[in-house]
Amino acid sequence: MSVLRWLFRYVRNEVLVLPSRVIAVVFCLSLLLLPLFTSNHYHYRIMALAGIFAIFAASWDLLSGFVGQVSFGHALFFGVAAYTASLLNLRLGMTHYLTIPLGAVAAVAVGLIIGIPCLRLKGPYLGLATLAFPIMMIGLIFTFPGFFGGELGISIKTKLAPTRLHDFYVCTLAMFSLGFIMWKITDSKIGIIFHAIREDEIAVRASGINTVKYKLLAFCLSGFFAGIAGAMYAHFQRVATPLSLAVLMSFQAIIWSIFGGIATIYGAIAGVYILFPVMEILRVVMEIRMLLFAAIVLLVLRFMPEGVTKWTRDRLERECPRCKVRNAFSRRECRVCFSPIRRELQKTTP
């Protein structure tokens, strides 16, 4: 009873006070309750894939958004894990309970391998260097087609889950849990150091922090989460193909993250859950699908340069000029310090 009372109080005092949190809760609940509204396997499929891609996009945001290590080749982690999982499943008969974590471990190893030479690089040089790795991996796949299956890829025996409904719940719950873990990492002391490295690496080093260690940690963490997504994807599609390493896959993660709002984790997740189903809906106008997609992205970035989530939050909430706590737009005084919140003040806040 006391737990329920605590929960009720928590929801009333911490969730319902902020529109962005209400939206997040409504989104999570509606996702979990989706099977009440549809039993169409195609809808489950789209939302399951959205869950996998949300983990992938959030992992890019963790590395590039938070630490500033802009990666143009994030599909490397995704693809390496997909291939590792497929090979372990096909050749050694391991189940997905083993192949998914081992795929993620392989992606971490790759994160270390590319992290070390890339640590000296910055900005566009780092971006281009990371872009090269998945291309090299694709070259490797085509060089040893007998082992990697060439362009046909490697088929997987074990499905991610027995039915589409199970697929949907596995992917959604994985997205919730891994998204939450990533968000908590960015909210921790490590996250603060990640932020600081992005803003001023020299200052961080001057403070006695080993930035090399933290940047490598970021590569490994990001690789781990992208790897889980990649291995899940391979089991979901039941095949790992060079497409999982394609440049398009890397760029999609960037587009989703920037669209939703960079350096937030939840922005990347929101970006996927908006854009991925939109792309599916646009199948009805297949001829101009990509054109419309590009137009939507461009318009959103023009009018919401910080991404959809930040733009929405700024419209629905205001920051208290005194204690910096966020309040619902309808409030005239801060919910914590009761200072008056005036729109003019909000506008001048950087």
Partner: peptide, 8 residues
Amino acid sequence: SAVEKAIT
């Protein structure tokens, strides 16, 4: 996805 949509 397109094929699964056609079926379901």
